[in-house]
Design a protein around this nucleic acid. Structure first.
Lengths: 227, 227
DNA sequence: TACAATTATGAAATTTTTTTCATCATATTT
DNA sequence: AAATATGATGAAAAAAATTTCATAATTGTA
């Protein structure tokens, strides 16, 4: 789980990072709003935690900018004030939750989990590297073009993205994308992989799908880096 | 906008209903949790507001039950206590927001709008009557069967659902579902409507799409009733 | 009721997607 | 390096989706 923490108070940032690390999350801490915006350009986060009061760019402003840029990841705002109008302002800026300092780590964790669970149950796109699979349109959104995927190509890519960076066997692929056992008489999987590879490839990024001889395939996607 | 308000304090319920009515929403007030569950069985709400403290079934319990039943509509819990652990409990139960009494109507409205806006930007299905259009699978989910829609049938139905109960011209349909002006030389729209009608029809419900001679079509869907 | 305009429909034609097949390329083992 | 197994690929075949077309049915109007 990739978490961005934008917080200028070093002690809070440090504690949060440490606690998230302990439970196996991947936190990244930045000290201001500009750094948060820069980080989001490069990395796909599962949740973004923004301190409201930061020098220059406030957490609220960062939140608004992220939503304008169509960043969909859930955002939680931290604030010293428990003013109710702040809460409304935060929601209107596109935040998903709001938490007042001081707070316990367990409370923050509960909110992070709630917000992420909800997000994953309703998300409409899956990102990888500098591309996105649009689950509603069934299109592959590359940096400079939008490519229509056929049904099978879509099913296959979706399966790869759910299992990125780990080996999947041909049997597993058949089961998920074709709903049947893999027939040794047919090579539909190979053919569809060939076609998907062609649609995925670009000048900068040639090989998303690596063949593991005798085992299956791995879809390589930097979980983290967007560019 | 269909809003369910489950609140046993009659005065609060009455005021909320009145205020929502004034701004053109369609509120329905019920006095307890059981009635709320029953209402959700029959009606598709855009947002559900639950009082935490209600006789027998609490708002929190109703919330959990609704999520178990895969009701996706956003839920806001009302409570007299501003205890932070309650907020965590609410989120863990699948609620989207939490508001402590006393609150102003404007604050509630802001939260309703925030929660609905977010929901609509990430929703993965559109409901109508006793059916659902699954936007990810491109399937039509009827009470007893799941029907695969072709791309064009899907585009057409999606357009109808976005414009239900109002006349849409053939030109509008072409523009949205085919991305081109309607050619007088082609009757693709009529043909696709014919095919969609066939897939939509059931023993109980024959005519979703009514033709308005010389004007276009209306897709009739009870905005409200599920059964 | 007759007529013109509009919509509905079955079936053919076209296009696209999916699958099969033959052949080539590559990896592993000996 | 040779033999064998596995995967890749272009092209053909089959199936499915989309569009066209001819004709039938329906609606509104004279």
């Amino acid at each position: 789980m990739e978490i961005l923490i934008a917080e200028d108070e070093k002690q809070i940032a440090g504690t949060l990072k440490k606690r998230f690390l302990e439970i196996g999350f991947h936190p990244m801490a930045v000290p201001n709003g500009e750094a948060a915006l820069a980080a989001v350009e490069k990395i796909v986060f599962d949740v973004i935690i923004l301190d409201w009061r930061m020098p220059k760019l406030s957490g609220l402003e960062v939140c608004k900018i992220l939503r304008e840029r169509e960043i969909k990841a859930p955002i939680i705002l931290l604030t010293a004030l428990s003013d109710i109008s702040n809460k409304v302002e935060a929601l209107n800026a596109g935040a998903d939750d709001y938490i007042t300092k001081p707070f316990s780590f367990d409370e923050l964790l509960a909110r992070v989990n709630a917000v992420v669970r909800r997000f994953h149950s309703t998300t409409t796109e899956l990102g990888f590297n500098n591309c996105t699979l649009n689950l509603v349109d069934h299109t592959l959104v590359k940096p400079n073009e939008i490519i229509k995927l056929s049904q099978k190509e879509y099913d296959l890519l979706k399966f790869f993205l759910k299992n990125k960076n780990s080996i999947v066997s041909k049997d597993q692929i058949c089961q998920q994308a074709w709903g049947t056992k893999c027939s040794p008489l047919s090579n539909i999987v190979e053919v569809t992989i060939k076609n998907l590879r062609r649609k995925l490839e670009s000048k900068t990024h040639k090989s998303y799908i690596r063949t593991i001889y005798g085992e299956g395939y791995i879809f390589f996607a930097d979980e983290v880096l967007k560019h």
